[in-house]
């Protein structure tokens, strides 16, 4: 009976210690990011991985566009860490070391790609060629442009979010240029046009 009491007291002390440790965590900060502007660069995909093209001439089958979404910090709010969230073992409660959580405010609703020059016999200048581009060369961009992807960053400071759009169809002509329109959930649109690239 006496032994049971001792165990009960020890257990209570351990629980009290855990609660105390968990309650002592500093409040976290949740930063909110939004897309500020977009930047386009031409990709040369002739090698094992796409790289930013250094010349304005590319092989017809190696063309890609790097879409950079530049983000800005638009707000922050305090977050409270739930009790026992980090506790894997009784009596241990670790706090988040940095105390911040990156988060996004924006969702990319759609991305559309239009050809600025005549592309082939069926896609003249101004035509929608979104479906001709594949993300990282593997996943086609939806023909209707609906992308529905929240931007996410796990950094404290804003950083650009990159997408590699690889052109999977060859142009019938020796030059190409594309206009990319990004629409975010708030309805705001960002638009950029690539430089003219000579295709060989």
């Amino acid at each position: 009976m006496k032994l049971t009491r001792i165990f009960c007291w020890l257990l209570l002390l351990m629980i009290a210690g855990t609660i105390e440790a968990c309650c002592n965590c500093p409040e976290g900060l949740r930063y909110l990011f939004a897309i500020d502007k977009i930047k386009l660069q031409i990709l040369d995909n002739s090698g094992p991985n796409p790289v930013v093209a250094s010349a304005d001439t590319l092989c017809k089958k190696c063309y890609g566009v790097l879409l950079e979404l530049e983000t800005v910090k638009v707000g922050q709010h305090k977050t409270r860490q739930p009790l026992f969230m980090e506790s894997a073992y009784a009596g241990v409660c670790e706090c988040l070391s940095s105390g911040f959580i990156g988060d996004s405010k924006d969702t990319i609703q759609s991305i559309q790609v239009f050809t600025a020059l005549d592309f082939d016999s069926t896609h003249k200048a101004g035509a929608d060629v979104t479906s001709y581009f594949f993300v990282d060369g593997t996943k086609p961009l939806p023909a209707n442009g609906i992308f529905n992807q929240p931007i996410y960053t796990n950094t404290e400071e804003p950083k650009p979010i990159d997408y590699n759009f690889i052109l999977m169809h060859e142009s019938a002509y020796s030059q190409c240029q594309f206009r990319i329109v990004v629409t975010v959930a708030s309805g705001k649109q960002f638009e950029q046009t690539t430089a003219v690239t000579h295709l060989i």
Partner: peptide, 8 residues
Amino acid sequence: KEKNGNEI
């Protein structure tokens, strides 16, 4: 990954 091409 295709050499001088986009095929994967």
